[in-house]
Every structure is written in structure tokens, then in C-alpha cells.
């Protein structure tokens, strides 16, 4: 049985809820009072993850931390279509992991800006926003060139992969950190495509796609 140690407003936790919804994987949720309770720094939680970070996932005897690592595990184990993390395609796996690392960079910038603005975290806000814009520019160009080649997703596949899930939440929540997506039209179109994947669910701050047909 899968247990997710979860916080509703965490984009990193949302990545896992999202993938499990796409895959139709049952799980139970243990809410962690991240704010203002700082329960992720409590002794009981540090035993699960000494880094004191969410999310943590337990599947029977396996205990995992780090959203990207857990995405890889869940897809490799439970995705019967073998699309989200195609185990037998080395080139694609390399590409996926490249963008999983990129997603970590989005967390370090766009998510940091959001924590600063909404929850009073003591971060260098200008550096966080500038860093996010730099990454968004790279992602936008990558997606734009992809569209010219008929590619809808971050990686070179005809279907979304865990790389799309890893990059999506903190891009989508960026405005809460004062980072507008106005100048990134290809990112906006890609966000809309992610929202139209069958099984898509929202988190607070993310709204479903409108009723209009896909762009």
C-alpha cells in the first residue's frame, strides 16, 4: 500500500498526486502540517526524511524522498503502458532525467519566490525571480521549437512523460511568486495541454482547463 506524506499547497507533493491520478494508483495520504506547524522539521518526520522536506512516499517497505525520484519509481513500477518513464529507451530516459534536474531548478527559483511572497520565507526574491525567468525562457524556446516539429511534450515522445509532470506545478504557480508567464506563449500552450491529459486533477491555485477545445 502506498502512503504519501503530503501538504496540499506543495507543488512537489502535487506532482505525485498528479501522476498517481494519471496512473489510477490507489494511495493513502498523511497530511503534514508544513505551515505554520513546521511538522516536516519534527522528530518523527526527520526519521522519514533527514532533509526535512516533503514529499515522502512509502510503498510497503520502501521509503523514498524527493519528488523527482518518486516520480521515476512510481512510473517504473506502476505504469503498465510504459509511457511515463519508458524503461527500454535509453535516449529518452536520458532526456527525461535531464528535464527532471531542470525541474529541480524550477523548484529552487519559482517555488522559492512563491514561498517568499506568500509565506514570508527569507529568500533573495530578486535572484529567485531572475533565475525562474531564465529557466522559463529556456523551456519556452524548447517547447516552441518542439511545436514546430510537431512535438507537444517536453521530451521527444508522442506522449507526455514524468518530465512534464515534474516541470508543471511550479510553472503553473509562478504568478504567486510574482513571475508572470505573459512572455512565454509556448509554456502557456503546453500548460493547457497538460491540463487536458486524461485523469488530470488540480491543486489549490491551479485551475482546470477551460471548456474550449485544445489549442
Amino acid at each position: 500500500m502506498i502512503t504519501l506524506y503530503d501538504y496540499e499547497l506543495s507543488g512537489n507533493c502535487y506532482k505525485l498526486r498528479l501522476l498517481m491520478s494519471f496512473l489510477g494508483v490507489d494511495h493513502t495520504v498523511v497530511p503534514v502540517d508544513f505551515y505554520p506547524g513546521r511538522e516536516h522539521k519534527a522528530d518523527w518526520f526527520l526519521k522519514l526524511n533527514p532533509l526535512g522536506q516533503l514529499p515522502v512516499l512509502q510503498d510497503d517497505d520502501l521509503l523514498l524522498r524527493d519528488a523527482q525520484a518518486i516520480l521515476v519509481y512510481l512510473a517504473a513500477k506502476y505504469d503498465t503502458s510504459d509511457c511515463w518513464y519508458p524503461r527500454d529507451n535509453p535516449a529518452l530516459l536520458g532526456e527525461i532525467n535531464q528535464w527532471l534536474a531542470f525541474a529541480d531548478g524550477i523548484t529552487g527559483t519559482a517555488s522559492a519566490a512563491r514561498l517568499h511572497d506568500a509565506l514570508f520565507y527569507d529568500f533573495d526574491i530578486e535572484a529567485a525571480r531572475a533565475g525562474a525567468h531564465r529557466l522559463f525562457r529556456i523551456l519556452d524556446e524548447h517547447l516552441w521549437f518542439g511545436e514546430q516539429e510537431g512535438r507537444d511534450w517536453i521530451c521527444s515522445a508522442a506522449h507526455p512523460t514524468v518530465a512534464d509532470i515534474a516541470c508543471f506545478p511550479y510553472v503553473m504557480l509562478s504568478e504567486e511568486g510574482g513571475i508572470s508567464r505573459q512572455d512565454y506563449p509556448a509554456i502557456r500552450r503546453w500548460c493547457d495541454r497538460v491540463k487536458r491529459i486524461k485523469g488530470f486533477i488540480v491543486m489549490s491555485g491551479v485551475f482546470p482547463a477551460g471548456p474550449a477545445k485544445a489549442a
Binding site: P31, D33, A118, E176, S204
Partner: peptide, 20 residues
Amino acid sequence: AAAVRSFMQLIFAQDKPILE
């Protein structure tokens, strides 16, 4: 108690982008 707090934040964070 944790459920009360979590519910409040879930609802509030839905309003936040609309308000902003």
C-alpha cells in the same frame, strides 16, 4: 486540529490567485 488547518489552507489557496 491538523485537518482543520489543512482544510482552511486548501480553500484559501483556491481564492488566492483569483484575488491577486
